[in-house]
């Protein structure tokens, strides 16, 4: 309890240094948070596009319905396949009409239905990439009653590349950003500890144990880090609100991620003061 009081007092005393440490933690975490927000929204976008991935297996007009039924069951059991939907010629024509809209008159006086029946296959999330889609398409193409398989090969390939680029760029810039944040925060803490080296010396002279000194500084570090984290969480919330109200709706952090941001601040404060103090205390 005394350490806590000591920390609170120290906090109020070294105002400039505390401010510097809190603000640098806050801004570093805010930058990281905004970066996470950007990734989160790219991911939402990717998932939206992926949800459009569909394999369309066109069926010859003379196909045996029994065998088609068996194929539906078969394909439904392939790894990654979510649903296999049979679309009859009539339904397909109906869809076609609806798609054409005003021009649907063109289809008014057809003697026979030119639109083929199909199996529309959707994939489970996590399987909506070239590798898995291609495997299912190849399997479908082997069936004797199949006319053609269409799955937007080129589009899917571009999606793959895009996802790859996003993850590589994300990891690299995330690592760089974390490094910069760590350097910034640890130097802020180092300066704060150094600015109080006199206080540490006096603590030692009057017989304070290293444990006592450490506790006081660690509690202070955690308090500052938590405040910095809260600052960052507030900033992220404000930015999300700004986008949602004035610009475009975006995916925001869930409560849990706000909590993580504050916790990351506390952890950084703890580690930062532990490391910079450790060096200091080791000298007798």
């Amino acid at each position: 309890m005394r350490s806590l009081r000591e920390a609170l007092l120290g906090f109020g005393r070294a105002k400039t240094m505390s401010f510097f440490a809190i603000v640098s933690t806050g801004f570093s975490l805010l930058a990281l948070g905004m970066f996470a927000l950007a990734l989160l929204n790219l991911n939402t976008l990717i998932r939206y596009f992926e949800s459009k991935v569909e394999i369309v297996v066109y069926i010859r007009d003379n196909a045996d319905t029994g065998r088609v039924g068996m194929a539906v069951e078969d394909l439904g059991r392939v790894e990654g396949v979510d649903r296999v939907n049979f679309v009859s010629k009539e339904e397909a024509l109906e869809h076609f009409r609806r798609d054409l809209g005003a021009d649907s008159d063109l289809l008014q006086d057809l003697e026979s239905n030119p639109v083929p029946a199909s199996l529309n296959i959707t994939m489970k999330p996590g399987y909506r990439d070239t590798l898995h889609v291609q495997a299912v398409a190849a399997r479908a193409a082997e069936l004797s009653f199949v006319e053609e398989v269409d799955y937007g090969r080129e589009w899917l390939r571009r999606m793959d590349i895009f996802k790859h680029v996003v993850s590589v760029v994300g990891v690299i810039s995330g690592a760089l950003l974390s490094l910069v944040a760590l350097v910034l925060i640890s130097s802020a803490i180092k300066i704060a500890v150094f600015s109080r080296s006199r206080e540490i010396f006096i603590m030692k002279i009057v017989g304070a144990t290293n444990g006592y000194i450490r506790r006081a500084f660690l509690i202070e570090g955690v308090l500052k880090g938590t405040l910095g984290g809260a600052l960052a969480a507030g900033g992220i919330f404000a930015i999300t609100e700004l986008f949602n109200r004035k610009l475009i709706p975006i995916t925001g952090f869930t409560d849990r991620y706000y909590l993580y941001t504050v916790a990351a601040g506390a952890l950084l404060g703890l580690l930062g003061s532990w490391i910079s103090l450790g060096r200091y205390l080791r000298r007798i």
């Binding site: 005394r2 000591e6 007092l9 005393r13 070294a14 006199r198 206080e199 010396f201 006096i202 603590m203 030692k204 002279i205 009057v206 017989g207 304070a208 144990t209 006592y212």
Partner: peptide, 30 residues
């Protein structure tokens, strides 16, 4: 061992942000 000794320096070694009472109490609080 240091608690068996009282140490005084030329430059006083007081913490300027603490009152006189707090400075003295400091030695016992630790």
């Amino acid at each position: 061992l240091r608690r068996k000794l009282g140490i005084v320096f030329q430059d006083f070694g007081l913490l300027e942000s603490r009152t006189v009472g707090e400075n003295v109490a400091f030695a016992l609080e630790v």
